[in-house]
Amino acid sequence: MAGAVSNLGRRSANITDAVSEPFLVRWGLIAVALIFLALFLVIPLIAVFKEAFSKGVEVYFASIREPDAWAAVKLTLLAAAIAVPLNVIFGISAAWAITKFRFRGKQVLITLIDLPFAVSPVVAGLIYVLLFGTKGWLGPWLGEHDIKIIFAVPGIVLATIFVTFPFVARELIPLMEEQGTSYEEAALTLGASGWQTFWKVTLPSIKWGLLYGIILCNARAMGEFGAVSVVSGHIRGQTNTLPLHIEILYNEYQFAAAFAAASLLAGLALVTLAVKSFLEWQHVRDREKAARAAAQQE
């Protein structure tokens, strides 16, 4: 018996070889994967920066400092500054209700949260036009009261909220599901109030997941094109977000300026990826730490 076991151990080196591929196949696959990713991801990314600086550094900075570009940046930041916090509050509320309680209609709420992911951005913009546009349901009433939503900032904010609606909730629900309710129960037995429990126990334990959701939500909020394009009306200096500004410049053949603006968003995307990877590594390290602690239990 003991002999057989040790034999198996000795042969395991061969078995490991048996479950991997031959050298050539391995490097062939790596090459295919890297070429594919280079072709579709890296080269386009390089192209953005290359084109942005194609007319020199001065043109680059001039096109970024141009008033319309500035206005577009400000509007983009404003839309994100409203949409992201609202979706954070929603995401936390929805995740709290869904993961800490059992109630009828939970599945409906979960489906509703997923829905915007399945809706084309164009349709996302369209639904607000149908609701608030001049010929829409509430259009006449809004017109009477001189409230402008479509082709104005509120419409842009609404469309941005819609397309970024699921991000935070989707991130928090599985995380809070996994943590269960015992931390909250422990806090309550120790005399903490509901808000104390939330601020001191729940929020710190979900902070990395929350940050992750916020990062993704923000990237989409600042980069959304389709939905915002439908509701914006493309008024220069007023209802143009950065992605829309890029489109206008591009269609006017001002390529260097278009790519200069695009480079800002590409930079944001790279920062987003970096922060996201950092958070993921953080999470993995956390997990490993906990696992190691569990393993060394005396």
């Binding site: 990713l37 991801l41 993704l216 990237a219 959304e224 094109f225 992605p243 995307a269 990826l273 990877s277």
Partner: peptide, 26 residues
């Protein structure tokens, strides 16, 4: 490998308009 892994999500993070003009130019 870690950089490549992170880069896979670029299409999620890069605004579609930016991707559109970059691909068109290429």
């Amino acid at each position: 490998k870690k950089v490549v892994d992170a880069l896979v999500d670029l299409p999620f993070a890069l605004p579609t308009a930016v991707a559109g003009i970059a691909l068109t130019t290429l």
